[in-house]
Each structure stands twice: as structure tokens, then as C-alpha cells.
Design a protein around this nucleic acid. Structure first.
Lengths: 153, 153
DNA sequence: TATTGTTATACTCTATAACTATA
DNA sequence: TATAGTTATAGAGTATAACAATA
């Protein structure tokens, strides 16, 4: 069985993820320093612009961070006065996250920078490549979910 | 300017990366426990099967980890007896990493599991989608390298 | 019983910087 | 001067588990 053509999907993913993290630190480190914005915080802020109020579980499903990680992340955003926790109208075990008046423009700025990046990538690749990109990631995650037990060594 | 069709490239990347990390822990946690294999270690072992002997800087370029992170990662692999550091034949400031006789089958096992995953994804998506996937990641990284200063908030 | 969220510990990875030794 | 690698510190993310409150 010829493996050529089956080139590394996962290493490419790792490399791009590292590059995104470095870029986020470079781009937002100077704007919101002390402390700097982390990649996870940037993604959450941008998400909140579109989806607030939402629960911590929504963030968990959207990005894959541990819920315990998100607890401390939200703690940090709340400590900066950008986010507040509030009750859910119908379920009392859900926490709803809101952007504060202080946090709203910060999150919109972050959202705009990310949108601009995505627009530049989109313009370079075209919508057909982007659709294929999403199909590959979806297929990857579905295969990961199959969870095949490895043959013991 | 219509932003529809410019869907989130970066969050999809983050989500897939987290899913890969969880899968690696699930798949290799039982095989090589105490301590468990981390995602970075798995990727490095699989890389060494194909590219050893290679330098730490090769790993740095391939995956994007900090060189300081790779120092301690190689320390761990060396502590397990799977990898050894050796001299470079011509440059004395390069360290060459080798798989040991103990590490070789471990790395080959890891390599085989990763290859099987990639083969399944490849079979689902087809080579044209995979090529598009790589084009999008390459375009993303090139745009990240442009490093546009964000408009101040 | 299962789910949401919090708390806690240990370990890995990152951000940073200083440092050496080599090129 | 620049590069390859190591060392060190602080903070962020993960693996894990326990826990309370709620569905």
C-alpha cells in the first residue's frame, strides 16, 4: 500500500496552531499588555461579540478547552472588567457570560483583527479551498472520535 | 463587504488541535503510561522514524515548539532510553538526535498509528481536499508572517 | 443519574531572557 | 554577529479527580 500522497495532516495542524499563537501574542501583546492577551482569551472575546450571552459550556464546545481551564480564563476576563457572569433565565445550573460596557469595544477590536486575517486568507485561497479545509478538519475530528484502540506494541 | 462565506478558520483550527490532543492521550495513554505520552512527544517520535538523525532545530521548524520546550522534551525521551543525543559530523554546535534500539519500535508503533489515522482521513476526503487543506494552512501562515500592526483601539 | 460549573494538584508548554559555545 | 542549544522563572493549559448544585 502506497503511503505517498498521505502527507502529514496533523503536523501541519500543529505548526499552524503554533504560528497562530505567536501571531496573537505579537499582535495583541502590545495593545493589551500587563498581562498580555493569550490566544484562548482572544478567541473567547471574539466569540462573545457574536454569541454573548452564552454559557461556559458553549465555549467548551466551540474551542475544546477544558471547562476547568475556562473557569480560570473567565475569572481573568472578569477580573479585567470585560466580562461578567450572570444567571440563566430558565436553567439555574448554567452561567451566562456577558460582555461589559468596558469589554465590548475590546472584544469588537479583537473580532475585527481576526476577521481581517480571515478575510485575507479567504481572498488568497478562495471559498472552494476553504470549504475543502473545513471538510478535512471535520473528517479528521470524526476519525478521532472513532477512537480505534491501537494494536499493542 | 459581505463577510458571509468568510467563516472562522482559526477557531476550527483550535478545535481540531484540541481534539487531536485528546485523541493522542486516549490512544497512547494506556500503551505507554507512567508517564503518559504527550502530543508533542508523539509527534516528535513519529518524526524521528522518518528523519533521524536530525537536530533539535529541525523539530523546532517542523512543529513550532520553542527550542527550550524541545530541550526538556528530548530530556524526557532520553530519560526513557528512547532517544540519544549525539554529535553532528561537521558542525559542533548542532546536536543530532537518534532513536535507540529501545526507542525504535516505540516510535515505529506511534508512526503506524498516526499513519493509519491520516490514511483514514485521506480516504474520506480525497487528495484534492487535502491539497486545498494544505494551501489554506500555508496561506494562513503566510498572512500571519505579514504581521500587520493592529489599528490601536 | 447525568450535567454544569468550581476547586485543587501535578505536569506540560509558552514567554522571556540570559547564557555558552560555536559558526 | 548570528545561530544552536541549555537553563531558569512565571504564567497558561491539560489530566485528573473530587465536589456542590441542578436537571
Amino acid at each position: 500500500m502506497n503511503m505517498r500522497g498521505t502527507q502529514p495532516i496533523v503536523p501541519a495542524l500543529e505548526h499552524a496552531t503554533h504560528a497562530v499563537a505567536l501571531w496573537i501574542d505579537r499582535v495583541f501583546g502590545d495593545t493589551f499588555n500587563d498581562p498580555r492577551l493569550t490566544e484562548a482569551e482572544v478567541n473567547v472575546l471574539a466569540y462573545l461579540v457574536r454569541h454573548a450571552p452564552c454559557s461556559i459550556n458553549d465555549l467548551h464546545r466551540s474551542f475544546g478547552h477544558k471547562r476547568s481551564t475556562l473557569t480560570s480564563l473567565v475569572d481573568r476576563l472578569e477580573g479585567r472588567g470585560w466580562v461578567r457572569r450572570g444567571p440563566h433565565p430558565t436553567s439555574r445550573r448554567l452561567v451566562l457570560l456577558h460582555l461589559t460596557d468596558t469589554g465590548q469595544p475590546v472584544a469588537e477590536h479583537v473580532r475585527a483583527v481576526l476577521d481581517a486575517l480571515e478575510a485575507r486568507v479567504s481572498a488568497r485561497t478562495g471559498s472552494s479551498d476553504l470549504a475543502a479545509y473545513r471538510r478535512v478538519l471535520r473528517a479528521l475530528e470524526e476519525e478521532l472520535a472513532h477512537d480505534p484502540p491501537p494494536q499493542p506494541i
